[in-house]
Design a protein around this nucleic acid. Structure first.
Length: 472
RNA sequence: UCCCCGGUAGCUCAAUGGUAGAGCACCCGGCUGUUAACCGGGUUGUUGUAGGUUCGAGUCCUACCCGGGGAGCCA
């Protein structure tokens, strides 16, 4: 492969003058050496930091995002992972070989550009680079992703390349902020991160379909659908804990809200009541959204996400009981019998009537998991809460106060026909110093999807795993 | 598991049952400030697969394959 380098040197007055120009063969593999003796070195600067380097000569290393030319001037848009900057190559400003060589630079060619950073009102970044050296690392083969629209099937097949595009780039940066906001929030609140195993001997909740794997001589094991039961054990050791990791659901769900593998964060705290759980969820969502708005304004702009609804995510969130929610649904003309769970359309309609997340608590126990504590003042309902995100997004959090009474929990295990042996360790938590406790689970991709205003959760995870898609 | 929609060039899509097309990508040429640049020319096809109806099927029928989003289930 060819490397082209056109080098400059500063004269005593500080002006930049051409010194040498070279075309040399690079090693066919590995990164190209930048210490060409003819080359005046320049400090490597990330694109995002370029505005602070206006007036100085720098080096950027990245990929050719797009190229436009106008006969006697080339515009090279270079992205380096931190941002995109335009390098300008004018025909009169550089040797003819370098100028002509720019014609051959295909989209996504990897390269190192050197030149002087200069302010320009026309540049989206505020600065551009007057390139005097373009070193090619590899001329890219014809790039599968075009500049025009693509369908979801094609983009998902090309997900490994699609990640380079502007929108996925912005989404993953928001995701990163959300993850750090989550960890920082729990750290500040005194929660210890204690992770749960992925291999489990049985279903945590007994309802969902799980992925099974052969586990040596111990027979069938399953990929976890939730770390909650383990978090409960850890909470009895550390008081306040959370786990944060991938979980797996083998349901044959094909919707914009479902993945077969997704990330869930599950705080659990000893001596927490349902009200404590709701207050925690409220503070938590407020902090996560605020942090994202603080760090990722630019990314939200790229995603054309209106920040105003996010700015309204401030405590207190409305809290309504299941009974009140049923009333609301009925008065809106929806048909629902007491005791039925809400369907997705009903949940969406409910959340759409609030301008911030809404907490729906005390669902009928019959539609909820076996480990949830019944309300002492109404045995028909569970001490649980679902948090529905606004703008029609729907459920992002499910939580509850847990059943802390051994006999009640044993009865629930039998009612749900769960294998008691597999739950003995869990029942032990009620034998040795049982306390009221509770927690919730938050789906990371649904949250990121809501914050980014995405159509589908598959865009909120780097490599989505869905029913009919496991590659790349 | 059920319901609905779709499959035509590398990509996004068009084509009353009657000669398969456009834009983008790619190749050639032009243009000194482009912002998915633009202008001119060119290359690109087992219309998902297998049958069937018809003088004639991308188009109608049947089965299958693949994909999509909705129900259920859930975060």
């Amino acid at each position: 492969m060819l490397a082209i380098a056109f080098c400059v040197k500063r004269n005593p007055a500080g002006m930049i003058v051409p010194r040498a120009y070279s075309i040399g063969l690079c090693a066919p593999e590995g990164p190209v050496s930048c210490d060409n003796p003819d080359m005046e070195p320049a400090p490597r600067v990330p694109v995002s930091a370029l505005p602070a380097h206006a007036g100085s000569r720098v080096e950027i290393a990245g990929w050719l995002y797009n190229r436009r030319s106008s006969g006697k001037i080339h515009f090279l848009q270079v992205r380096d992972g931190t941002g995109v900057v335009q390098a300008v190559v004018g025909k009169g400003d550089v040797p003819p070989d370098l100028f002509e060589r720019c014609e051959t630079l295909a989209q996504e060619t990897s390269l190192i550009v050197r030149g002087v950073v200069r302010a320009d009102a026309r540049a989206p970044l505020g600065v551009e680079i007057g390139a005097d050296s373009v070193e090619v690392v590899q001329i890219a083969e014809p790039y599968p992703l075009g500049k025009k629209e693509h369908g979801p099937d094609f983009l998902l097949t090309q997900r490994h390349l699609w990640l380079r595009s502007r929108k996925p780039w912005a989404v993953l940066r928001v995701r990163d902020s959300v993850i750090r906001a989550i960890r920082d929030f729990f750290h500040k609140e005194g929660f210890l991160c204690v992770d749960a195993p992925v291999f489990t001997p049985a279903a945590c909740e007994g309802t969902t379909t799980l992925f099974g794997v052969d586990y040596f001589d111990l027979g069938k094991a399953y990929l976890t659908q939730s770390g909650q039961l383990y978090s409960e054990a850890a909470a009895m050791a550390h008081g306040k804990v959370y786990c944060f990791g991938p979980v797996f659901r083998a349901e044959r769900s094909k919707t914009r809200r479902h993945l077969t593998e997704f990330w869930m964060v599950e705080p659990e705290a000893a001596f927490y009541t349902l009200n404590d759980v709701m207050s925690l969820a409220e503070r938590f969502l407020e902090a996560v959204v605020a942090r994202t708005l603080e760090e990722r304004r630019e990314e939200l702009k790229i995603l054309e996400r209106d920040p105003v609804p996010l700015e309204r995510v401030r405590a207190p969130f409305p809290r309504i009981s299941y009974d009140e929610a049923v009333e609301k649904i009925r008065s809106a003309g929806g048909a629902i019998e007491w005791g039925e769970d809400f369907g997705s359309p009903q949940e969406t309609a409910l959340s759409a009537s609030y301008d911030r997340p809404v907490m729906v608590h005390r669902y009928p126990a019959q539609v909820k998991a076996f480990y949830m504590k019944r309300d002492p003042s109404d045995a028909r309902v569970a001490l649980c809460v679902d948090v529905l995100a606004p703008e029609g997004v729907g459920e992002i959090i499910g939580g509850s106060q847990r059943e802390d009474d051994l006999e009640a929990l044993l009865g629930r295990v039998r009612e749900h026909k769960l294998p008691q042996e597999a739950f003995e360790w869990y029942l032990d938590l009620r034998r040795y110093g049982s306390v009221p406790h509770g927690g919730f689970g938050l789906g990371l991709e649904r949250t990121v999807g809501w914050i980014c205003g995405l159509e589908h959760v598959r865009e909120a995870i780097p490599f989505p795993r869905m029913m009919y898609r496991i590659v790349p």
